[in-house]
Nucleic acid binder design. Structure first.
Lengths: 172, 172
DNA sequence: GCATGCATGTAATCCGTTACATGATTTA
DNA sequence: TAAATCATGTAACGGATTACATGCATGC
């Protein structure tokens, strides 16, 4: 049920079409909340029905620009502060590690090495993003973004270091 | 598609009924892979159809004990080493943080404080589990479990420290 | 005029959750 | 004998993915 809240959040910076939103899901929200194209269009239609958004303008090629309504804004704020985030309960990487004693030790090591490499790579990419962001003028809006970025940096470093440590545990 | 692999992994230690498996999902796999009762029974029936598991024994109250087959074992090993884990792409807590500039600063701080507390609590609980586990005789099977536990310890500590740091960022 | 990008929509299928429904066995 | 636990199954619904389908506008 969070897709609509992600949409509402994105619309707080101004009206946007489904197409615009899709790109913002792919870029800024890539690792925070993902959505497919067909999911988005369907959800926007439902949200318009329910009065959370409205079509503010129509453009060429059937483009519809949606704007958040007062009801939509209220729903967003309620969800942000009154609804508890669901803890994550599915992690395919960890599920594999849980049964890692079943595979050849060299395959287990290769698996962990790969996870460490992926995490290291992600950490490097985020570090580059962080450099760019640090040069921007700070404001309220990008402050939240920086806090999320910092989470990414810390999480990827933790993941990388854990995978390297795990490798030593399996080998011994 | 990982539910079946979780089931196969659990069955490598011996035959079990849907009911047995459900409890193991709730306890050992709680934060690794969750499943509901109706999902499990449905999946076991499908897996039996496909020859990944078989009914090895029947007991009182209609109890059916499932055992992993050679095909099931092959499917599990293939998935473990040849199929890349899906990166996580949805995190409701981070989605809220991404839009945290939209709420009153005191509500934002309260949100982060709560996340820090939850993470700290989880870290404490896992620490207690770790103490118990360290007293067990080490073997191949619990080695994987310890590696997962270590992930939990590191992830919860990172999460806790990040949330405390984020609080200072929002307040300033 | 052709390729690329903009732009929306629908259908089929799968996975997951919630709720309902039923009944046998054990234990206090 | 009543309560707790063991044990399985199904139906309805909602959310997510994949694939299909279509067509306009812009820039080269």
């Amino acid at each position: 049920m969070s897709l609509r809240h992600a949409v509402l959040g994105l619309l707080t910076t101004g009206p946007a079409s489904g197409y615009d939103l899709l790109k913002r899901f792919e870029v800024s929200l890539a690792y925070v909340w993902s959505a497919t194209q067909s999911q988005l269009y369907g959800e926007l239609a439902k949200m318009a029905d329910e009065g959370l958004v409205e079509v503010a303008a129509e453009g060429p090629r059937g483009r519809k620009e949606y704007a958040i309504t007062a009801d939509g804004r209220a729903a967003l704020l309620h969800w942000m502060t009154e609804v508890e985030p669901e803890p994550l309960r599915r992690n395919g990487m960890l599920l594999r590690v849980f049964f890692l004693h079943l595979v050849d030790p060299d395959k287990a090591v290769a698996f962990l090495r790969r996870q460490a490499d992926l995490a290291a790579q992600q950490h490097d990419e985020l570090s580059k993003v962080a450099e760019l962001v640090e040069q921007e003028e700070p404001d309220q809006e990008n402050k939240s973004g920086r806090v999320v970025l910092e989470w990414g940096l810390r999480a990827s470093a933790t993941y990388r270091d854990w995978a390297r440590w795990a490798e030593t545990q399996i080998s011994s």
